[in-house]
Structure formats: structure tokens, C-alpha cells
Design a protein around this nucleic acid. Structure first.
Lengths: 253, 253
DNA sequence: CAGTGGTCTAGACCACGGT
DNA sequence: CCGTGGTCTAGACCACTGA
């Protein structure tokens, strides 16, 4: 008998399904359109719902879909480019930096941040909370850790709380001469509080951008910013700030 | 002290499980140590294997675990920092840039790359494949697209194949005056070929770094590099190249 | 070969958003 | 209230690794 056409196709069902759906999204759906619900889709493709969900998860990870509990699954717009490294460094809070200070209070930084700041393990620092909105959507939440030694003028004053205090810390910081900065990007998952700020479920994939600010020969502040990985493409303009339009194509399938 | 008591605690099991495991990893396990298998772990925690796996997946995404089919689950070392933006830009292939040219041949670039290169939709360009190894492990696979117009000297010559040809293209490129570059980072999932090069399964999370190289007033080349998201922390040294040691702590839970 | 993680199924119930 | 996606279960089989 003829051997069957398919010589060894141990391609997982969910993988094949993802490809099929991806092509359908390109050709048959418009941005914002809602897909059939998961139960219907699974039945239509003859697979269990869990398998269908595995494919949808991948597509959501790649920024092609957006799923919201109680609502449905919609076709996501192309990722928005968010500038994160404006040429030479500037202090956070510089004019027009797209961040909105939300809060500020004392806190003990995580151990890795404390190491960068060279503070003692249990030492408190100022922690400024900020959020970033782009195209009407929250895209990032930031925790900025500022040792009290970096903003000495603030130590004794009566402390306005909330956003006012946050602005005061940023203003103090801007007085220092910024000597350089250092950035790292890695994959993480949203903590419960970040998730809420980003309008996502806890555990959602995020791009964590850690920035060290150097002044007076030491690390004057550390920023840990978590960006929604599904909707954001981080841009680092090492040259003139050329704006690029990306199409719906994907870099990795 | 406050009222922050449980107003409702429908915390998912897998989320709680992840927290418990995460703490256990910090205190009771050494890097490289193998965990009990999934069936045992699930039984020990009194959950279904699928639920246990959901927790493990998160931990793997955060770079705390490494799972290999047929082998087992091991405790991963802290993510390694890989430099991806060495101060001022240099052409790919500059001395000591940690990349190893593997192959080169003609190819039609994806539509978004073609747009950046301003080539015609079906126009062929040189495609150089390179891989990057760090600490004895493959960490990234790159596709570098170079329009024929950027390396005119190469058009007529007899073409050595493979790595030799790749090196020839890079050498030609280095002759141009680099005017700047532009970088973007986003989350993706590994294509089948990238997955093989990175020793991962297809669909594994990757950080996709797209770099545009400008010369002679236009985009002379585009690089699309996919880094293993589980093992890598991308560093962008905007200031002097200070080396940072990160501990096992995580930025996002 | 035995043991591991990877895939898949067919159900069930829950939390949430809108009506 | 209903319909949605999110969580969870208890199985089954497959693909791969290493002894």
C-alpha cells in the first residue's frame, strides 16, 4: 500500500491551529473585530477547548489577539512602539516624558535593587509610583527607588502625600547632574498590583525595564518599569528619533 | 494596623502554588538541582498535573526553572546579562562582537523588514544567519538582511557558500560609514528553526530585537535577533560598560 | 527499556461584564 | 440574568532522553 502522504507530522495540533488562525486573522478579520467564543471555535476545529485555548494563548502572547473575561476575544491592533531610551539620558520626570506620577512613600527595595543602590538590606528609600499612558491605554507601571541620600533636601520637610510628594522627589532628583544610565530588559510576569494598573490578569507577560541612574559617582536612583508585553514594542532610539510604522506582520511566527 | 484582610480570596491555585514553589526554590534548592517529577509534585500538593504545570510554566517563563523533555525539571541559574547595545553603534561583525556567522544566501525578507529596507515586496536580499553563544550556551539566533545595493562589490563575484560568504557580506558592510542605528525589543515566540538553534521547543518565548543600520542616508541593513527570553537579560549600556551582578531575586513575582 | 515532560480530551465550576 | 473567558480535574497517549 502506498505510504500515507504525511511522513511523520508530529506537529502539535495547537501549533497547526495557531498557524491557521493566524492566517485567518490576516485575511478575514479586521482590527477590533470579535471572534466566535472559545467553545464554538473549538467545536468548529474539532478539538478540545483546552487545545484551542493553547493556540489562542500563543496568539495573545504575540500581540495578535486580546482576550477579556466576560467580554470575548478581539483582534488586537499592531503593537504600539513606545520610546524607552531617548538618546542621551534624562532624569525621570523631565518635561514631556509621558509618565504620570501617582504616588510616593517610603519602602524597602527588593534585594537586587538594594544591591544596585548600595543601600543596606533593610534600609528604606523613597519609592515613587508612576504610570505611563499611550494612545489612551495604560502601557507601563513603574517603581522608582530613590535613596534618601540622593534627595537630602527632602528629609526634614513636611511631606505632602501622593502625587505631590512624588513630584517633589522628581524635582529634587533633577537637580543632580546625570552622569549616565544603564538599562536592562527582561521578561517577567505581572505582579498583582502591576496587573491591576495595566488592566491585565496577574501573571500576564511583561517586559521589565530596569534603569540605573548615575550621579556623583554612584547609583542615584533605580527604576523598575513593567510594560505590557502583548501591546508594546520598546524602541531604543540610539540615533535621531525616526518614527517607524510597523505593519501587522510578525517577526516570529 | 489596617483592614487589609481577605475581602475575597479567590486566588487561583496555580498562582498560590507558584508562590510556594518560588519560595521553596529560594530556600531549599541549589542551582542545577533536579525537582521531583510533575506527577509526584502534583500529588504532593494535592492538585491535578495540569494545575501544577501551569505554575511550573510561569516559573520557567521567569527564568527560575528549566524543563527538558525526557530529562526533568531543574533549578535554573540567574539570567545572564547579554550586552545588546554597545554604546555607540557598530556594524555587525565587528571584532569581538560575540556572534558567529553561520550561513548566507539570497532570500525575500518579511514584509515589515522589506518596508524598513525600502526594497520591493518580492525583492531578494542577502540573508546572513548568525548565532550567539554565551557561557557555553546558545542564547540568540539572528537573521541579518542586507540589500544588494548595500554591498555592490559582492554582486558579480563567485560566491563561496556558507560561513565564508557570510563573512564576505559583513566585511563589505563594514566599509560603509555607519550613521546611526535604531533598535526595538518585543516579545515573540520562537519559530521552528529558531527553536532548534536555541535548543528550545517551538513557541518558546523569545525577545525579538530588531535593529536598523543607517548609512548613506538610508537603511543599509536590518537585523532581527531572537534571544531566549528564559535565560537572557538584555543590557543596553548607554553609559560606560559597568558590569552588574544580579542575584536570584526577581523583578516581577 | 523505564521515566520524564509535552500534548490532548471531555467534562465541570467559577469570576466577571454586560443586559 | 446570560454568555464570556479563567480555572481545575482525572484521566490518556505521545515523544524524547538516558541507562
Amino acid at each position: 500500500m502506498g505510504t500515507t502522504q504525511l511522513e511523520t507530522v508530529p506537529e502539535p495540533k495547537y501549533w497547526h491551529l495557531k498557524t491557521v488562525l493566524s492566517e485567518a486573522l490576516d485575511s478575514e478579520f479586521a482590527v477590533g473585530e470579535i471572534l466566535p467564543n472559545e467553545r464554538d471555535l473549538a467545536a468548529r476545529f474539532g478539538v478540545a477547548r483546552a487545545t484551542l485555548r493553547q493556540a489562542l494563548e500563543q496568539l495573545e502572547l504575540e500581540g495578535r489577539l486580546q482576550r477579556r473575561r466576560g467580554v470575548g476575544t478581539t483582534v488586537a491592533p499592531p503593537r504600539m512602539g513606545v520610546a524607552v531610551g531617548s538618546a542621551q539620558g534624562t532624569w525621570p520626570g523631565a518635561v514631556g516624558d509621558a509618565w504620570q506620577p501617582a504616588d510616593c512613600g517610603p519602602a524597602v527595595p527588593p534585594a537586587d535593587v538594594a544591591r544596585m543602590l548600595e543601600t543596606l538590606p533593610e534600609e528604606q528609600v523613597h519609592r515613587v509610583r508612576r504610570t505611563r499612558v499611550s494612545h489612551g491605554q495604560p502601557v507601563a507601571a513603574e517603581l522608582l527607588y530613590v535613596p534618601t541620600s540622593s534627595v537630602p533636601e527632602l528629609t526634614g520637610i513636611d511631606a505632602p502625600s501622593g502625587a505631590a510628594r512624588a513630584r517633589a522627589v522628581l524635582r529634587e532628583l533633577a537637580g543632580l547632574g546625570l552622569e549616565g544610565q544603564d538599562r536592562a530588559v527582561e521578561l517577567g510576569s505581572a505582579r498583582a498590583d502591576d496587573a491591576k494598573a495595566l488592566d491585565r490578569l496577574p501573571g500576564a507577560p511583561v517586559l521589565v525595564v530596569t534603569t540605573r541612574f548615575f550621579a556623583e559617582g554612584r547609583t542615584a536612583a533605580v527604576s523598575v518599569a513593567t510594560y505590557r508585553a502583548d501591546t508594546c514594542r520598546l524602541t531604543f532610539g540610539d540615533s535621531g528619533g525616526v518614527e517607524i510604522h510597523h505593519g501587522p506582520e510578525r517577526h516570529a511566527s
